[in-house]
Design a protein around this nucleic acid. Structure first.
Length: 563
DNA sequence: TTGGCGGTAAACATTC
DNA sequence: CGAATGTTTACCGCCA
């Protein structure tokens, strides 16, 4: 079989595949890779595909930039549209900030419980511990500095400058303390104090969401930041607990300050960093847009008075977003960028990326990041990924196409070689009993039989922990790992600095943001999009958490899987 | 060496 | 009719 495969392609690896095996795929054109024998054509195709992808993923309306290029004078409608888009962007950024804070809260909570569990070996782990904290605080600090630079903090209505300064100071203290080499206990105390100050000082995220009362309060109320919906929310852990006390026991016994937990925390760090990066991009874009509009304003003197909006936009947007999330503005063509934080914070195994080192050899002629995005393979089995996709959907059910969407959106790796992995997805859906096909009014959806899924895991306890990392082109399979093990696998990979931009899968993209992502990543091959994106529900499925189509005919309405 | 597992490929049938 | 979807089989490499 593989011998025959080698006749068709250089090898049977997805990364190496050419169109031969996929000629039937409509996204076939996107599978061309630098390693392809048709390398000469790959570049041109790639160039061609960027706009195609953009057009696929963005609504069929002109972007403000396009409009401005065509006519420098803005009419009120255009300005209003731009205003709305910018507001949406600001909301999106706010969302990111909120989620960053949540990430930190979760991380802090993990550290706190580790403090209890940790009785010995503190000195050995101190350096490791401090490194993680330092990373976290650096992210936070960078984020806040960025906010301050952008003037975002100052425009928050209930955030006094002193509070913002205190917030910044808290971060700086944390950082400096870390660099000062204090012991973990002190660090945790400082971290906690910093966090409390943050909360009391109305961190931006808190302005939007006051419902979180912090780990300490939670703790006294039989709640815990890492405990929600009867499940342990530790990154990669999906243990179910009906009893909070049992959960606490589990927390103290399973998630201790060991290598695994450290690696998992590192994963969380990477997620936060990615969010920061995305936020930075968004801000740069916003700045560019605003400066451009300002220049336009100066050029077009007879312009309408509304062109003064850049001066008031930030405060207006933020204050509105903070106080009136449902402000009756015409939303962008897609759904609101604001999503429940858990959609971003629930770091699932399926969001870990795995870089097969052998694939890096193809990065000669392309931007390294892009290549990594393209080549990085998720360190999870198809079954695990499918399950994750379904699990993340609001209704815990997805059509095949929605599963495809999740794959392509979540992992750049799956934005090409569609014939291969789609076939694998279908194969796995049919093969594994844990995937149940359910006939629906609108067709069939796939669900997960969790019992069955769990049942098949501990087949070989001894060998379960070993991760296969083949060197052959053929095999990429990992053992059917538990989420934790897959998490570890990914964490190890993170350690190699091969993490790729996973921001897009973590929250639905605002059209502008999505466009940018696709532009910058040379977002290629979103297969179904080629032909189906323009269909009505395709668009929605692309932005509303896969299964979140409002047209879902059955099951719970308005079910928001909060955590 | 063997069996289990996951990935890949492909043929085929059914549905859209 | 073609594409999408779903099922099944075969084979490979890896691992215990």
């Amino acid at each position: 079989m593989h011998e025959s495969g080698s006749e068709q392609t250089a090898c049977t690896s997805p990364a190496n595949q050419t169109e031969n095996g996929e000629s039937a795929e409509k996204d076939d054109c996107l599978s061309a890779q630098p390693l392809s024998p048709e390398g000469s054509g790959a570049d041109s195709r790639q160039q061609n595909q960027v706009p195609v992808s953009v057009s696929m993923m963005t609504p069929p309306v002109e972007t403000p930039q396009q409009t401005l290029k065509q006519q420098q004078v803005l009419n009120p409608q255009q300005i209003q549209a731009l205003l709305q888009q910018q507001k949406a962007l600001m909301l999106h950024q706010q969302h990111i900030q909120d989620l960053c804070q949540k990430q930190q809260d979760q991380f802090n909570a993990q550290l706190l419980q580790q403090k209890h569990a940790e009785k010995s070996g503190q000195e050995q782990l101190a350096a490791q511990h401090m490194a993680i904290q330092q990373q976290l605080l650096q992210v936070q600090q960078q984020h806040l500095l960025s906010l301050q630079r952008q003037g975002l903090l100052s425009v928050l209505p209930s955030m006094s400058p002193s509070a913002a300064q205190g917030l910044m100071k808290g971060c700086e203290n944390g950082t400096s303390l870390l660099s000062g080499g204090e012991n973990p206990a002190t660090l945790q105390k400082n971290l906690l104090h910093s966090q409390q100050s943050t909360t009391n000082g109305n961190h931006p995220s808190q302005l939007l969401k006051k419902k979180d009362s912090g780990p300490l309060d939670d703790h006294t109320q039989n709640t815990h930041p890492l405990y929600g919906h009867g499940m342990c929310k530790w990154s990669g852990c999906e243990a179910v607990f009906r009893d909070f006390q049992v959960f606490l026991k589990h927390l103290h016994s399973e998630h201790t300050l060991d290598d695994k937990s450290t690696a998992q925390c590192r994963v969380q760090m990477q997620v936060v960093q990615q969010l920061e990066l995305q936020l930075k991009k968004d801000k740069e874009r916003l700045q560019a847009m605003m400066s451009h509009l300002k220049s336009s304003e100066q050029k077009s003197k007879p312009a309408t008075p509304t062109v003064t909006f850049p001066k008031v936009l930030p405060s207006m947007s933020l204050s509105q977003s903070a106080t009136a999330p449902s402000t009756p503005l015409t939303p962008p063509p897609t759904s609101s960028p604001i999503l429940p934080p858990h959609t971003l914070l629930t770091v699932s195994p399926g969001r870990r990326w795995y870089s097969d080192s052998k694939t890096m050899k193809y990065s000669k002629t392309m931007n390294q990041d892009i290549v990594q995005n393209k080549e990085a393979r998720p360190p999870f089995t198809y079954a695990a990924l499918i399950r994750q996709a379904i699990f993340e959907s609001p209704y815990k059910q997805l059509t095949l196409n929605e599963i495809y969407n999740w794959f392509t959106r979540t992992f750049a790796y799956f934005r090409r070689n569609a014939a291969t992995w789609k076939n694998a997805v279908r194969h796995n859906l049919s093969l594994h009993k844990c995937f149940v096909r359910v006939e629906n009014v609108k067709g069939a959806v796939w669900t997960v039989d969790e019992m069955e899924f769990q049942r098949r895991r501990p087949q070989k306890p001894a060998g379960e922990g070993s991760l296969k990392r083949e060197n052959t082109d053929h095999g990429h399979s990992s053992a059917f790992l538990t989420p934790k093990q897959e998490e570890m696998n990914a964490a190890l990979w993170y350690g190699n600095g091969s993490y790729s931009d996973s921001s897009e899968e973590q929250y639905p993209m605002h059209p502008l943001v999505k466009e940018e992502l696709m532009d910058e990543e040379a977002y290629e091959n979103v297969p179904h999009d080629c032909s189906e994106t323009e269909s009505s529900d395709e668009h929605s499925s692309d932005v509303d958490q896969d299964g979140g189509s409002p047209e879902r005919p059955n099951l719970q309405l308005a079910h928001v899987p909060s955590q």
